[in-house]
Design a protein around this nucleic acid. Structure first.
Lengths: 146, 146
DNA sequence: ATGTATGCAAAACATTTGCACCTGG
DNA sequence: CCAGGTGCAAATGTTTTGCATACAT
């Protein structure tokens, strides 16, 4: 299935190039599922080939348009990206250590649809992020502190 | 009650100054409830006294810390602010014309709390924004097009 | 008086764009 | 070969900061 990657790119009308493959690979393999453009850029620098930061942004934008990845605008002015592995979900972010948990709630999804219907909107997307402190935030022992 | 304003500022440990009063006034009086720092800055320029854009940002940040206003990070890299008039609510933004509708749904709020409990987070805040097209978006007749 | 606030200009970021060169199909 | 992709540097848009001056209490 890793071989599907090239096909995915072609289907999106994108040439299969080294930067694109590397970026996809990083997004797939990194234990950190939510990465900023800078994060990805840094990972790229650690490997051989040099890739420009501008290319990272261009590629991420194209991937998003192609539906391969999703962009999230968390608080703090920068975006993070994650590979579209399967089903939609929302996020819970610890304001102390920055860890991101994912969740999905069918009832919330239903209610959103109902609200949009009532107000005459056709939904194109939504962003639900809960901010809070994870269990260990208070005692300074956040296990996955950044 | 408009006279309360000064008191609100003092309670927040902020001196009562012209820029602060003007900014509060704009936030209270503008028909557009959700304004960016730039929006507010432009309104200020139209009145007599010159206020720097830097001051707008500083004051907005202080107001947010004081709980007088709320900052929202909608898509597109800039923030908008709104006065805290009463109850919490979430937003529905038309990606075509930019109008912002507000809504509140008790069930969604409940579900969020339940999810946070299950994952061991204590909620400090949340951002739920539904993006979509309002009824008139499709025919190019968006009534309140920006 | 005196600690805060402000204005201005410059800095700091995140992201985008122009352009000459490179590369995949 | 040639359209599309890339790197680099410069441009953008937003928000922050340093510093000398002005103001509220």
């Amino acid at each position: 299935m890793a071989a599907m990657t090239n096909e995915d790119l072609r289907k999106a009308g994108l040439k299969v190039t080294v930067p694109r493959l590397k970026i996809l690979e990083i997004l797939e393999r990194s234990p950190q599922r939510h990465m900023s453009a800078e994060d990805i850029y840094r990972h790229l620098l650690e490997s051989d080939k040099e890739v420009g930061l501008a290319t990272v942004y261009r590629v991420l934008t194209q991937f998003e348009a192609a539906g391969l990845i999703t962009r999230h605008n968390f608080e703090g002015g920068h975006s993070v990206f994650e590979i579209n592995a399967g089903e939609h979900h929302d996020h819970l972010v610890c304001i102390n250590c920055g860890i991101v948990e994912e969740f999905f709630d069918g009832i919330i999804e239903q209610r959103q649809q109902a609200i949009a219907d009532k107000l005459g909107f056709s939904i194109t997307g939504h962003a639900l992020t809960i901010y809070g402190m994870c269990l260990h935030a208070n005692d300074g022992k956040c296990p996955r502190r950044k």
